[in-house]
């Protein structure tokens, strides 16, 4: 499917949605707390309000803002009941972060839905749990190309990069709105005026350009897709786990190692001698080794080469 025909398909679908009052148009805006998901969804809601459409916009406040998953359902049409979008019925998923986009993909209408995603990766601390030598990030390994092979209409763009080129990386969301504007049938000037009213006065111009650039990008995505910047982490051979050796006779039980161990896998036993309580948890970071005043701890890290 070519880009232009894709855009047309979305537009047609949207037209149908507006004609059939029973069917709402569904836009799911997703991202990470702090990215502006709510702001983006409000822009859409305001557009709807301007066009005197019923609109429901639903989100969850509270813990979500603390670096967690943020999503906002925006539904509009002549009549809207449910505040949330049924799975498989989102007309557009607008993802401000790559993995968040993937998380919600099942909400996308598999036939007519448009996936617009920033290729930006925000890797949470939680995805950095495997600290073993050779350990991998828990971040999704799917590339934009893989997604595009299944969802040909996917628009994966480096909005932050585009915005930075325009002179203000904070305008990334406006770039995405520009891309989104190609999938929803609202007049461009309405988008622009709403955005102009929403952003700080001194950034109106850069946001205007950001919107235009995002929109043009989506209407005519460059041949060399920025989506390629979403690449899987190169798999390194997993090395043998670290081994921790304790020379009991040297340990004086000062307890430093137990307390500094990032993995909490050491303890002082009843003889006041250090003991490893969870050998599998040891990553071989060497903090205990370094900070043992008694030289009682040794870390052995086997490299693949050594094993061969």
């Amino acid at each position: 499917m070519s880009r232009s025909s894709h855009s047309t398909a979305v537009a047609e679908h949207h037209d149908n949605a507006l004609r059939d009052s029973a069917v709402a148009t569904n836009v799911l805006v997703v991202g990470v707390g702090g990215q502006g998901v709510i702001m983006v969804s409000k822009v859409i809601a305001l557009l709807c309000q301007q066009h005197q459409l019923q609109v429901k916009q639903s989100e969850v406040h509270g813990m979500a803002k603390r670096g967690g998953v943020v999503f906002s359902h925006v539904r509009f049409g002549e009549q809207v009941y449910s505040p949330t979008i049924p799975t498989g019925e989102a007309d557009v998923i607008l993802a401000l972060e790559w993995a968040e986009g993937l998380r919600w993909l099942r909400y996308l209408n598999p036939h007519t839905g448009t996936f617009i995603a920033d290729t930006q990766q925000i890797v949470p601390p939680f995805a950095c749990c495997n600290r073993q030598p050779g350990g991998l990030s828990g971040y999704d390994q799917l590339t934009a190309n893989e997604i595009r092979s299944q969802l040909p209409g996917t628009l994966a763009l480096d909005a932050g990069g585009i915005a930075a080129e325009l002179g203000n990386s904070k305008a990334a969301n406006t770039v995405l709105l520009g891309a989104l504007s190609t999938a929803l049938e609202f007049p461009v000037e309405d988008w622009q005026s709403l955005i102009a009213a929403a952003v700080p006065p001194q950034t109106v111009e850069v946001n205007r350009r950001a919107f235009t650039t995002g929109r043009e990008w989506a209407l005519n995505p460059p041949a060399s897709n920025a989506a390629e910047s979403v690449t899987p982490v190169v798999l390194e051979p997993v090395r043998a786990p670290a081994e921790l050796e304790i020379t009991e006779a040297w340990c004086k039980g000062c307890d430093i190692c137990v307390k500094v161990c990032p993995e909490r896998c050491l303890l002082l036993n009843e003889r006041e001698v250090v003991e490893i309580s969870d050998p599998a948890a040891c990553t071989g970071c060497r903090l205990c080794e370094w900070l043992c005043p008694d030289f009682a701890i040794r870390i052995h890290i086997q490299t693949v080469e050594a094993q061969v």
Binding site: A249, W250, K252, C292, P293, D294, F295, A296
Partner: peptide
């Protein structure tokens, strides 16, 4: 391998528990 550099037969050393000198 620090033990390559130590006179291991003298260990445990005489310093108190937690003494920073060993570090």
């Amino acid at each position: 391998e620090i033990r390559d550099y130590l006179r291991t037969d003298l260990f445990p050393h005489f310093m108190c528990p937690g003494c920073g000198h060993g570090i």
